[in-house]
Nucleic acid binder design. Structure first.
Lengths: 254, 254
DNA sequence: AAAAGTTGTCTAGTGATATAGACAATCCGC
DNA sequence: GCGGATTGTCTATATCACTAGACAACTTTT
């Protein structure tokens, strides 16, 4: 049996809706069109089928289709103009997963403007998740940094990084000063870090996550877990970054 | 700005529901609990909070909670027993993304039973997706194989692989005979293949995809695109595999 | 200039969702 | 054996989603 292989992108979202699944018809239409946009089946500038055609295709009333298009417009994915039609406005960012990633370079490479901020820094006790990944005892003191990144002002990722204490006491101050984790590491005597593992999964955004990333409720998140070590192989950083699956696709190259 | 880092798993799904988002309250509860299970916040064997507690936590009627739990039970994620409580039954498969992947080994390594089948094989004209990845002219003749994989009888992935013709004419017969793509390649004079790129993204399942993978409508898919080459660097295979994000997490290691 | 195509807005009726209450049945701890 | 905790089932009502029709206003095509 060959390793799993994805099917080539099929025709646009299936017109048949699922009734009784707890997802409103208009919402399913939203998700379907959004999936077409995210997958490239609908590209920026493309005009959507007219409302009456979509209604016929999805087997719903034209008002239901309008409810969906209204939501898509509110999310900035499409723009409707009276008498002309509804056009696609969305695009995604190709985000490489690799031994090292530079958010600013990734965004600039896509012809967009990167920005970011350190939302919070605090010393706390390592929870089970961080303790396991950093090889610490549960409850061990750690430094936790929360950061938010954006491309062209659109939130891209919400990330929390955890570092063992007391080794990394003061890292947050160095980070605020240098705006670079790599430079902050160097100031602390660590010439470079190495990626140990990366894990990707996906799930719906919790309400507070959706709010932070300016997403509609329940949008899908790509969750990227990274563990980094110092040159001697000691684990120094465990990070979890949340990305909107509508705005980002993960790319791995060898 | 450091590379994005995920926040450690937060407390269980936010109890507040989003009204007016087109997702029924009971359905949001389903997704929230399912996310807790997928993320490990709720582990197999854990008992869920009682119905009355969940109703209070989510701010809904107990019947609405029961509607959600009924759905989770139908999906095989939880099991309710009168007088005792509701317990978690789900688990996920760690699926490595790497230069080579062996589904059977991955599943066996998780202590589960792998199975799979070749659903279809056909000669067709390359669509834009495959043509781009294989470096072919659009419409060039290709062989397309569709496969389904399962672990312990639970569908894990639906994959479509595309191969250029006439070079790979007969590959499907060799594949049926050897049950191994690597062996089939060797019989055709290709000692080994190499991974060129892998891309991971996520989106809701289309109805026919959900049906094929035995998922509830609208469940989240992890979509893995791979491009492989022969030892000389010529692209020989483009694959898209669809995975349930509830059942699989992608793991990358260096 | 007129017709056709398309989005935008208004009013109104029917079915699904969520709520509510009550009580039965099962399991577990004391 | 009893009480408390929890799931299971029944009936009933209010609110929201979806449908339907009609027509206005704008843009594009003929």
């Amino acid at each position: 049996m060959p390793d799993p292989s994805p099917s080539p992108p099929p025709s646009p979202a299936s017109p048949s809706l699922i009734r009784g699944a707890g997802v409103a018809a208009w919402r399913q239409i939203v998700d379907g069109i959004e999936a077409d946009i995210a997958s490239g089946r609908l590209a920026p500038g493309d005009r959507l089928a007219p409302e009456t055609s979509l209604a016929e295709r999805f087997g719903v009333n034209r008002h239901t289709v309008r409810r969906a298009l209204s939501e898509l417009a509110a999310r900035g994915l499409v723009r409707a103009t009276q008498g002309r039609g509804t056009f696609v406005e969305a695009r995604t960012l190709a985000y490489p997963i690799g031994p090292r990633t530079r958010f600013t370079e990734i965004v600039a490479g896509a012809g967009r403007q990167a920005s970011g901020e350190l939302i919070s820094a605090r010393e706390t006790a390592a929870n089970a998740w961080a303790a396991e990944r950093l090889g610490l005892a549960a409850g061990a003191p750690v430094l936790e940094l929360v950061t938010m990144r954006a491309a062209d002002g659109t939130p891209i990722s919400l990330a929390t990084s955890t570092f063992p204490l007391p080794r990394f006491a003061g890292l947050d101050a160095l980070f605020r000063e240098t705006r670079s984790l790599t430079l902050a590491y160097r100031r602390m005597g660590i010439p470079d870090y190495r990626r140990l593992t990366s894990t990707v999964t996906a799930r719906p955004a919790a309400p507070e996550e959706a709010a932070a990333l300016d997403l509609a409720p329940g949008r899908i998140l790509l969750v990227l877990d990274n563990v980094n070590t110092d040159p001697e192989g000691t684990r120094i950083q465990a990070t979890r970054a949340l990305f909107s699956a509508d705005r980002v696709e993960m790319v791995v190259e060898w």
